[in-house]
Write a protein that binds this DNA or RNA. Structure first.
Lengths: 187, 187
DNA sequence: TTTTTAATTGACTAATCAGTCAACAAAAGT
DNA sequence: ACTTTTGTTGACTGATTAGTCAATTAAAAA
C-alpha cells in the first residue's frame, strides 16, 4: 500500500494511454486512489515524477538484463541469455516497456543522461560487450553503436511479439530471430 | 510564404525542443510569425496539427527511401541504396527525424495506422522486401518483422552519426555498419 | 465593377491544470 | 504522556491554454 508506488504505477499506465501532455496530475492521483496533494509530497513537480519514474523503470529493466548470466560458461550462450532476458522483460511488462520507449524518444531522455546509476549501468554493459569483442565472439566496432543496435533489435522483437503473441511459443521463429541477431554481432 | 508550412516547421522545431505537452499553440504561431487564430484555420485542433505533421513527415521520409533504386540493377546494391537513402535523410533532417521518432513512440502513432497513403507505402515496401526474399538475397522471415528491424537498425545508425558527426565521412565505419546490416538480412 | 469566398488578425473566454496550504492523522522519538 | 516529524487530505488559486469570433483585408469569381 505504498502510495508512492501506487502513484508511479498509475502514472505509467496513464502516460502510455494518453501521453504526457494529456495526463493531468489530478488524473494520476485519482487513478492511484489517493488525494491530489500527496503527489506533490512524493514528487516536487510533475516533471520530477516523470523523470523519477523513468529512472526507476530503466533501473528495473537494466537489472533484469544480466540475470543469471554468471550461471553460464560460454560467451555466446551469455549473449543469448542477455538477448532473451531483455525481450522477456518487455513482453512481461508491456506498459512499463512502452513507457520507456516513449520517454527514450521524448525530451525527458536528456534528464536521465546524467543520472549516476544509469551511467554506471551503461559502463558495465560497455565493459561486458568489450570483453566479448576481445574474446572475438562479437565483431569489433564502437561499443556504443553496438549497444544501441542491440537494444534497437531487441525492441523490434518485443514490438513484433507483442503484436503477434502466438509467436512467443513458436520455437522456429525465436531461433530464427536469434540467428539474425547473432549474425549481426558475430565477427 | 505558405503559412501552413511555416506553422508545421515551427511546430516540428518546438515539439522536438519542448515536447507536445509543453508546446502551446500560441508558441507555435509566435514562432511561425503568424497570428494565433490562423493555426485553427489550417488545423481544426492541436491534435489535428500533430497528426497532419506526423503524416506529412512520414510521407516525406518514405518517399526518399526508394530514390534512385531503379537506376541500379543488382538486388544487393538496391538494398544498400535503400539503407543509405534512409540514414542520409535522417542526418540531413535531424529535427524532422527526431519528431518522427517521438511521434512513433507516442500515442499519436495510433492515429497514423489507418492513414491510406501510409498503409500503401507500407505495402509497397513489404512487396519489395518479399521480392528480395524470393530472389534469395534476404533471409526468409516475416516481412513486417524484417521491416521493423531494418528501420530500427537504420535509426541506430542515424542516432550514432548524429552524436558523432565526424563518422559520416569515415568510410571504414560506414562500410562496417553496412556489413553488419547486411549480415543481419542475408540468408 | 461588384459580389462572394477565403485568409488573417488578435482580443477574448471558459475550462483546465500544476502546485499550495491549512488542517488533521498517524508514527516515531523522547 | 508528550512532542516532533512525517503522511495525507481536498478545497483553493493564479496562471495558462485551446479554441472562438467578430472584424478586416485580400483574392477570386461573376
Amino acid at each position: 500500500m505504498d502510495k508512492r508506488e501506487q502513484l508511479l504505477a498509475a502514472a505509467t499506465k496513464l502516460f502510455v494511454e494518453r501521453g504526457f501532455h494529456a495526463t493531468p496530475t489530478s488524473a494520476i492521483s485519482k487513478e492511484a486512489g489517493v488525494s491530489a496533494g500527496i503527489l506533490f509530497h512524493y514528487f516536487k513537480t510533475k516533471d520530477d515524477l516523470i523523470t523519477d519514474l523513468y529512472v526507476d523503470l530503466k533501473k528495473e529493466y537494466t537489472n533484469v538484463i544480466l540475470k543469471d548470466i554468471d550461471k553460464l560458461t560460454s560467451d555466446v550462450s551469455k549473449i543469448r541469455l542477455i538477448w532473451s532476458n531483455s525481450w522477456n522483460w518487455g513482453l512481461e511488462n508491456p506498459i512499463k516497456f512502452q513507457f520507456l520507449l516513449q520517454a527514450d524518444n521524448s525530451i525527458y531522455s536528456e534528464s536521465i543522461k546524467n543520472h549516476p546509476e544509469i551511467i554506471a549501468k551503461y559502463h558495465l554493459f560497455g565493459e561486458i560487450i568489450q570483453g566479448y569483442i576481445d574474446n572475438k565472439v562479437i565483431t569489433n566496432i564502437d561499443i556504443y553503436f553496438l549497444m544501441q543496435s542491440m537494444f534497437a533489435l531487441i525492441t523490434s522483437i518485443i514490438k513484433h511479439l507483442t503484436l503477434n503473441p502466438a509467436l512467443k511459443n513458436d520455437q522456429a521463429f525465436i531461433e530464427k530471430a536469434w540467428e539474425l541477431f547473432y549474425n549481426y554481432l558475430k565477427p
